[in-house]
Design a protein around this nucleic acid. Sequence first.
DNA 1: GTGGTCTAGACCACT
DNA 2: GTGGTCTAGACCACT
Lengths: 125, 125, 125, 125
Amino acid sequence: MIQVDLRSRTPIYEQLFENVRRMILEGQLEEDDKMPSVRELAALLTINPNTIQKAYKALEREGYLYSVSGKGNFVKGLGGQVLSQEKRLVLTKVEDAASEARLLKVPKEEILALVGKVYSEEDRT
Amino acid sequence: MIQVDLRSRTPIYEQLFENVRRMILEGQLEEDDKMPSVRELAALLTINPNTIQKAYKALEREGYLYSVSGKGNFVKGLGGQVLSQEKRLVLTKVEDAASEARLLKVPKEEILALVGKVYSEEDRT
Amino acid sequence: MIQVDLRSRTPIYEQLFENVRRMILEGQLEEDDKMPSVRELAALLTINPNTIQKAYKALEREGYLYSVSGKGNFVKGLGGQVLSQEKRLVLTKVEDAASEARLLKVPKEEILALVGKVYSEEDRT
Amino acid sequence: MIQVDLRSRTPIYEQLFENVRRMILEGQLEEDDKMPSVRELAALLTINPNTIQKAYKALEREGYLYSVSGKGNFVKGLGGQVLSQEKRLVLTKVEDAASEARLLKVPKEEILALVGKVYSEEDRT
DNA sequence: GTGGTCTAGACCACT
DNA sequence: GTGGTCTAGACCACT
């Protein structure tokens, strides 16, 4: 489900972007799946169509969607390029988080255990 | 050293906030150290004093600084409250990053190794 | 072979136009060759017949095809008029590209060599 | 001078994009030059500010401008990355044009001469 | 019906 | 004053 928090300080179109991106990474949206139309989603979320459009365009630019004029927007499979870019991003995220944890003197063992726990969790998809 | 990137899209006062917060966590700023005055720092960074003021106020609100009227702003030691709140935040960060890495099928071993590497690095402070 | 990319943001009828034009210039289609009928091509490419029609009309307007009612669409040989118009267009293209290359300080020799290479390539038709 | 043709079928924001891009490549706009503000340019060209904004954002994304919130938009020097990308693009342009010229049986010598002429022209900047 | 572009106009954060 | 975001609503091309 795509959800948006109107009160949040992060722009709506960024929230939409992240929402869709995550659904693709999680496999909830698969290659060539049709996205709801701009107007449809706008009506559903009671958000202006322009804002949806902006999010879809950004997703297209970043390689997550493709649009067929007159047809709609569709999910672009996770090509190698996007995947390796995603991987680079997530490794930086891990590194930053770990380095901040170290600063706070969180014992290494606690971090390792947390990572282990995340990886052994049941899949909730 | 406090540095600010005017070109960045993250607000200057947030950059200041993060800068000071990090220096406190890293021990570069210690309990009861005197912060540069608003005007001093504004002149140094060629930034509007209002912006510095806003950052200091936020740092005070979050428990990193305290202000003595007529004297200036001072570092509030890392009290238990702030520390445990920081720790909670960083653990969430680690969890999020790890869970995203798992989604991208980055092998657990790669993440564990990365964490290990971060913890064994020389301190560059 | 006529091929069309539905994902591209250039209109399908323009893609068709360019495709046919190129095949005529390349000699794959010759004077008085019969084009596939609108319906035939529409079925082949799983594209709306209106779109094919639009492309054929444009090609007729620009002097690449002629239509015989009840018979179909046919290739109009590369008359002098079309050819000289085409030549004018391509020379402008070369000029623009060269002038932009010069702006970017690409050495003249590199451009000349590139042109030479293109002209010495085997014909892949 | 930035100029726009409202009648053209290419979107206004793309025309603006190309205009500014070219002025940067030509050296008419130099590193850290201040661009006219969104509202200023909108008034000057009698175009909606949103459209200017869209063009500026695209130019920022592609590495031609940077924006300082509350200050304005500025020219980003031609970093190596942008330059090499530009060069790649222009070489493809030359190649395409040459290959089309060959198709039209334009003699190689004519193309080489044209390139030579472009490179020997006086600088009109 | 669908995406793409654009206008008019508002409000916000930052300086 | 400046950029950034958003709404409301219109019109266009393409299918």
